[in-house]
Design a protein around this nucleic acid. Sequence first.
RNA 1: GGCGGCGUAGCUCAGUUGGUCAGAGCAUCCGGCUCAUAAUCGGAAGGUCAUCGGUUCGAACCCGAUCGCCGCUACCA
Length: 501
Amino acid sequence: MSNYYLTTPIYYVTAKPHLGHAYTTIVGDALARWHRLLGDNVHFLTGTDEHGQKVQQAAEAAGLSPQEFTDSIAPLYQQAWQQLNISNDDFIRTTEARHKIGVAELLQRCYDAGDIELGLYKGKYCIACEEYYTDDELDPGDLCRIHKIPVEQVEEENYFFRLSRFQDRLLDWYAAHPGAIAPEFRGNEALGLIRGGLRDFSVSRTSLTWGIPLPWDSKHVAYVWFDALANYLTAIGYGQDNDEFSKWWPAHHLIGKDIIRHHCAYWPAMLISAGIEPPAGWAVGGWLLVGGEKMSKTTGNVVNPLDLVADVGVDGFRYYILADTPYGNDGDFTYEGLIGRYNSDLANNLGNLLARVATVVEKKCGGVGPAPRSDSPLATSAASAYAATAEAWAETAPSRALEATWSLIRATNAHLEANEPWKAEPGAAVDAVMGDALEALRIVAVLASPAVPETSETVWQRLGLPGRADEQRLPAAAEWGRYPGGLTVTKGESLFPRKSV
RNA sequence: GGCGGCGUAGCUCAGUUGGUCAGAGCAUCCGGCUCAUAAUCGGAAGGUCAUCGGUUCGAACCCGAUCGCCGCUACCA
């Protein structure tokens, strides 16, 4: 049994949970659940990023202390993930004591290594970005390109992380670890920006107090990115519990394409400096657009995932997110797409298959599920569906994984159609066909459980199987012929009632 | 400007080292079936794999050029 440590980015508490957060988190959850099926010992982490100037400002605007403010937002994420059936093993908030202890440790290590040095920073600073910019990075009139507001001329004593020293070490590390960043073109992008030259970056601020003090100079608080990245360490005991830490590290990171620089350049450099092994891998996702446009408050197209759950259920939403968006590229959320997937894949294929099988078992087999044939033609369909599903999950390609799993559902519908058990008199022939269908459904329930966990449990129970679908272990659970027969099959309500468009 | 990517059936996309690679799903049309959620099954139609040229016995896949689109070039999934 191997340990598998998976992280999502931690989400900045100036925004409430939206579709974009849900997208990354659901992908992470499905991956975590798949690895649990494989028998891995999984630790799946998500959380919230709660320090920095923007939080301080948002708190002031709300008339709260920063701590009160973050205390009011962080639970929204925890609740959202609960409602989306996210199986995170931990949830870290960067305002927790364990995090502050670990960050201090990491800072001190980098400082002791000589990679953090005091400097004077004169520059043009965008308050909204919390970033300094050079002239060529600004629009005419010294406007921030992102926020279109004037930057301020600021002079501040800062500590700097000497990132510029790490270019060769990073390139060497990546050369020795091909494929660490997926998809490949994102890896090229990361290498490109490292080759393009790395500038030292400021890791402290004296201009605000809402942050973690530097252990050797308490006038400074840690820059929010340094603070935030460290969550991946502090959540598993860095600086406090070495056994726990070394049990899980290095991590597999799930990130968005916009934070490649921080995660693929800053972060491994910080780790190398502190004497910690770089991450095991990064899976970089694209944006989930809404109607072809980037979600933003100004265009008013921010989608609340919980509204969608009310329409198509948790699994309907999860399935759509996973099946309709090839990971790595931008996806496009549309309501029509959501309903289309729901109807065709969930209602027509999976839901209807279970319904027709249950009915025929009831009518022709007395409601008792027969055992499958060992030489069923469906056995090969199941084997190839499993192989393709496993391969796709290994490549962080949920959409292809689900397509592969669903191929077994289609094959099962075809198998029924070819044998027409509803026309035959009860007997061995009917039993054989229905046993095959039940066995295929059993395998589908296991393979689909990372995406649609609730549905898989329901199918599992309706088939009369003991235990739970998500307790099964692959590859054994995908072997043909494990449905024992003699179990009571329950018809039940429609799994996914069709939606009218 | 620099670096990188994309352009495959109406739509969304698979095609890992060049030789059943011209595919899947959805949508459309025709037919079958009626156990099932007007579901399902079969079949058809639909692409000169952006364009041009090259390498090769053979290229969607390699090389060059052209056209179009996009990403990154220190905010945030």
